[in-house]
Design a protein around this nucleic acid. Structure first.
Length: 110
DNA sequence: GTTGAGCGTT
């Protein structure tokens, strides 16, 4: 008997997906002041699918504070990029990568 | 061409 469900699925979803937007976020600090979001995203792109990349800066003075956040689509890729890009050199400066802490005040619905 | 530990957002 031929199994109708015995075939391999082309779109394999074996990777872990994070919940909406409160996970898979990486905290990137000690960035060079000349580093942009595209450089950050471009540096973390080969490690996984990035859904969001932001550099924290003042919305009035336009001066960045030197750190940012990178959101990955899969949690496994986020931690893989963490270990891969931690203490890495960008723009001639060493950067720190850590797991971002959850946003306070936002609803965390699973 | 602007400072240096850090967990943030119009």
């Amino acid at each position: 008997m031929s199994s109708l469900f015995g075939r391999k699925s082309a779109g394999n979803f074996s990777r872990l997906f994070c919940s909406r937007r409160f996970s898979c976020q990486l905290f990137v600090s000690r960035l060079s002041f000349y580093t942009t979001e595209e450089e950050l995203k471009k540096a973390f792109s080969p490690f996984g699918k990035i859904t969001e990349a932001r550099l924290v800066q003042d919305y009035t003075s336009k001066h960045h504070k030197g750190f940012g956040f990178v959101t990955f689509e899969s949690e496994s890729d986020a931690q893989k990029a963490l270990q891969a890009m931690n203490n890495r050199m960008i723009r001639g400066r060493l950067i720190f990568v850590e797991v971002a802490k959850p946003v306070t005040g936002e609803k965390r619905t699973l």
